[in-house]
Design a protein around this nucleic acid. Sequence first.
DNA 1: GATGAATGAGCTTTCATTCAT
DNA 2: AATGAATGAAAGCTCATTCAT
Lengths: 203, 203, 203, 203
Amino acid sequence: MARAAAKKVKPRKRLTGDERRESILEAALGCFLEKGYIATTINDIREASGATTGSIYHFFDGKGALAMALLEDAVAGWSGESTATSETPEAVIKASAGGLVSWGLKNPELFRFTDEIRTLAVTAPEFAGIADTLAEGQGSASASYSKFLKAKKVKDLPWPVAHSMMLGPAYNFLRLATTGRARVAAKRAVEIFADAAWAAVKA
Amino acid sequence: MARAAAKKVKPRKRLTGDERRESILEAALGCFLEKGYIATTINDIREASGATTGSIYHFFDGKGALAMALLEDAVAGWSGESTATSETPEAVIKASAGGLVSWGLKNPELFRFTDEIRTLAVTAPEFAGIADTLAEGQGSASASYSKFLKAKKVKDLPWPVAHSMMLGPAYNFLRLATTGRARVAAKRAVEIFADAAWAAVKA
Amino acid sequence: MARAAAKKVKPRKRLTGDERRESILEAALGCFLEKGYIATTINDIREASGATTGSIYHFFDGKGALAMALLEDAVAGWSGESTATSETPEAVIKASAGGLVSWGLKNPELFRFTDEIRTLAVTAPEFAGIADTLAEGQGSASASYSKFLKAKKVKDLPWPVAHSMMLGPAYNFLRLATTGRARVAAKRAVEIFADAAWAAVKA
Amino acid sequence: MARAAAKKVKPRKRLTGDERRESILEAALGCFLEKGYIATTINDIREASGATTGSIYHFFDGKGALAMALLEDAVAGWSGESTATSETPEAVIKASAGGLVSWGLKNPELFRFTDEIRTLAVTAPEFAGIADTLAEGQGSASASYSKFLKAKKVKDLPWPVAHSMMLGPAYNFLRLATTGRARVAAKRAVEIFADAAWAAVKA
DNA sequence: GATGAATGAGCTTTCATTCAT
DNA sequence: AATGAATGAAAGCTCATTCAT
């Protein structure tokens, strides 16, 4: 609030391009997680990263681009967590929901961040298209479902409905948990929502 | 210091307080639904309502207060839709999930608006507390669940989990449907999610 | 700050014109003293007095007029306090300075209020002319000084200088005392500054 | 949300940071002196300085911060003028009062500006603490007084009282002089008030 | 007399982005 | 690559005052 008037320049560590890039990303993530995307200003990121405004714009196309870059990382981690060890429908679907819960409980702030962006994407043109990126990450099982369906292993539901059945509970729970309105042991939660996902759609 | 005396009076249509208040609320809702809460400016509301800036502030404390006033209406409509005709656990829970879907599909923009506010509430102090209001509206079954539990009619799940099981799918579906990524006949959707809610938690 | 949105009308006590006028003046004084003239809004006065905006403007020409009305009362009380019991130069001058200190210590907020207005008067056109009113009140001895001078009872100083010699210390002290930066027994202070005033100008 | 990208760049004269900073300070001072602090708007300063709104806020925290920065300069000039050539109580006290008058008559607008801020400081939170800054500048003799007192060179008066005795007349006179209600030759005035200050407190 | 809705210019401040150096 | 001053539209909000009822 009280802005520092004409801050004296504190000598900055000299970084290589890549290091600088990384430091900016890190700082941006920190800010987004801490105060939310909207409330974060470029200035916040500048202060947190030690880079200059110009530097930030040298490496990224702006605030939106920073968020996008971070989201991709987020989705990657998420997908990684959701990989099944076997290819049976049950394993795949349980891994999908369980992985989501597991990842979300480990990275609550990151979950909230993606959730914020998803919501903004509805009205902010700068995030148009992000919805699909997120949907993919979330539904790694998306492609598989029709395969399972053909094998009569799962209920015949339109994909959006099936998706909602499988991941809706997990997603809802994470929203509660990451805003402090649910406290359940992580391990137990992963199991519960994995089981529920399978129960909800198995044929 | 001495503020310039109001110059020409271009008398606007004279409305009673309540009429003006209503017209502002309506205009605000229209703007919020159309472009989202964040993207809507007081000026947009001013133009849409025909009121003056001062009038808007005469009746409301600001943009946030307008949103809050509208949210209360939304929650009311929502709860109304979710009232069960009988008191059996099955009826109550089905009404809760089915009502949510039904209301959301009828008022997709209103659903998106509440969703936007809910997300903002996580970081915007002006909406602190709204989360609970929304949660209540959503979980009219909250109080009932423990009663059903005592009667051994439902699974013994912590409330956040139970809540997620029952309403998560519906909620998730509405998010898809209201952003154009799901097209399912409303009637059918209501049934599906009502049934699923009950199936997910019945003992 | 947080404005009450659309306050419900609380039934107002019915007052006669004069009572209403008085209640507004009182409320205005209270506000001015409490938060200063500038920081006080008509709305503050409205709330404090129980009158309506229209009523306030019915009885007074605006915020400035309210201040002026109050100032006259202030100056009157002030002058009253400064009346000497005898007509000797010493008695008159001591009464003038002593009276000022006495009045100021009894009405610290009123003193601060007049001081605020005096300062504003320098740049605010609405208070042009008030400076003289205040100067008179302060220097009830103004007219007398030249008389004393002719009688060789006081130093031959230009009036502004003489005035400063006699009342400057008292005035300065009140500024300190009324902002909490001086704590001296009132009785003693009155004496000290009365004596000093006379000592400073006696022939 | 996404702020409109800055449109046309109408390149303004490029100044170094310090030059721009100075030009803003100068412009602000000009405005404050001319129309008073309260009546001056950021826009006035913008126009007077040739800087843009953003630039002003880039260098200063706002109107209040500008005033503070200027006040420090003022106090410095003031103190400079009040330095005695010898260390005797008489010299020091005379220099204090004489310097105040001398400085004030040379910088009447600056005097009025400090006076305005001092008055505002009573109620405006943004200037809390400024009172002490001003008091110090004014009473460079403050620390010395107790020393003189120990040496029995001055009257045993509480500091606020002594301060008022010494500087009150000078201060009062400057208020009259700088608002055009006193016309006395500067040289003569300096002497008079210097002498009076000493006379008022010498043992 | 009384009411309070209406006025609207004007305020301070924000901040994503650009670009001369 | 790096810097940080500069941009300026636009935001939310204030408030003395007017006037239809």
